[in-house]
Nucleic acid binder design. Structure first.
Lengths: 240, 240
DNA sequence: TGACATTGGAGAGTATCACTATCCAATATT
DNA sequence: AATATTGGATAGTGATACTCTCCAATGTCA
């Protein structure tokens, strides 16, 4: 299989494949002569994964490279790999990529942590020991690492909802958390027990790739609920 | 309140505020002299919203502009605004706008600025009349518009999970959908009944800003579930 | 054998995005 | 009067993700 076949098999243009090779997002093929290299199924798989991560998961190429490196590193313990992967993943809002189904050309950078100005500066001590999110998860009995950056992201996202006047109070958060706990249970149950590597791969990719599935489901569920409730309430909400 | 106060109140640098004014992401202040314009609380609010949309929601400035235009357009019926907003929203992955309306980049003022809203979308191509996602939602009895692009995004995201070998089968999807339906119910219940405009604003912003909250909750829930289940199963999963 | 296409490798070029920087003359402030 | 700030404008920056062009070596087919 040469580069043109690889390109055709994945739908990725040849120059882009070359670019990915240059950028080490794709491992080199076996050089068979000075102008020929052979690629195989592993390249198809990797290329597909890169595109899934960037187009569906919304990762930047840099973030995708880190994720791939993390799940393919054989010398780390699962705990280490998870730590690396967690750090490799962009923030929860980091997704932002191509939309369309046909013109899928979007791309964008995951927003890692830029040192940009914060919004309204509500106290931001490095390593806030306590915060609304921390209290919330503690109140539910969730056992999470208090230093986990996801908690800070949750704080920021929650704050943003407040400032937008969305009325996201504790009660609503509790209802969300109940539902999300089900999702988390399903997530964890679906992790393969075959090997630590397989488990890590599954969790990391599941984090990135299933989020869009859930987001889409949410929009559809909103539509369904709105339509079925407006059947009795006669309001024109949510017709696309 | 002048531009420096606005900047200080929001944490957005003055040159960036100027940029947003140029790009009509922020409505101009009241010109009080040739070198002075007055801004008020509405500017603070708008600026905060723009930053929330871009930093938390992960939208591009172009997408944020469309969203803001949609929720602030007073001449459209709620149904129209919802339709516009749905199309303005990026894909489920927090997608960037693919193409089509991005001709706005000019540093040359006014060229297309006065042309106002790009609120006239071309009709959707029919696309796939049937797909796994369509069958899935139909099978659950969800009433959604069959031409909704979110269905295509769900197809793409689901496909990507398959190709990554995540084993996202119908059963798991059903479990996700059950949980997400709860979320959708909570979403719809929280929509204010005061005015159609307020409702539209709430739904649109809720779609963009609550997704990150849910994504963060999901990661925390995974952690919690993994930790509490590994308490008995002694596997080293998910320790950050 | 020869015409023609493809390949790997490399570098340069392009488009978009989201800012920054610099300049100006007209005002405010002190 | 001295200094600072403002609105308005143009131009420049850095990051990202490609895309293009070139090359000689090498395949492939007639």
């Amino acid at each position: 299989m040469q580069i043109s076949d690889l390109s055709e098999a994945t739908g990725v243009p040849v120059p882009t494949v070359k670019y990915y090779l240059r950028e080490r997002l794709l491992h080199p093929g076996v050089t068979v002569s000075r102008t020929r290299a052979r690629y195989d199924a592993s390249h198809v798989e990797r290329l597909t994964l890169v595109r899934a991560l960037t187009e569906v998961g919304g990762l930047s190429l840099a973030a995708a490279r880190r994720v791939l490196a993390a799940i393919e590193e054989p010398d780390l313990s699962p705990v280490d790999v998870m730590a690396v992967a967690q750090r490799s993943l962009p923030g929860v809002a980091g997704a932002r990529p191509a939309a369309g189904t046909s013109t899928t050309t979007g791309a964008y950078a995951g927003r890692d942590h830029e040192a940009g100005h914060d919004l309204a500066p509500p106290c931001d001590a490095p390593g806030a020991p306590d915060s609304r999110s921390r209290r919330f998860v503690a109140g539910r009995g969730w056992q999470v690492h208090p230093g986990d950056p996801v908690l800070d992201e949750l704080d920021a996202a929650w704050e943003a909802c407040d400032r937008a006047g969305l009325g996201l109070d504790e009660e609503r958060m509790t209802r969300y958390a109940d539902a999300v706990e089900q999702i988390g249970r399903t997530d964890v149950e679906s992790v393969p027990q075959t090997s630590p590597q397989a488990a890590v791969r599954h969790v990391v990719l599941g984090t990135v790739l299933v989020d869009p599935v859930l987001a889409a489901l949410r929009r559809l569920a909103q539509q369904h609920v709105a339509v079925s409730s407006s059947a009795s309430a006669r309001s024109g909400m949510l017709a696309p």
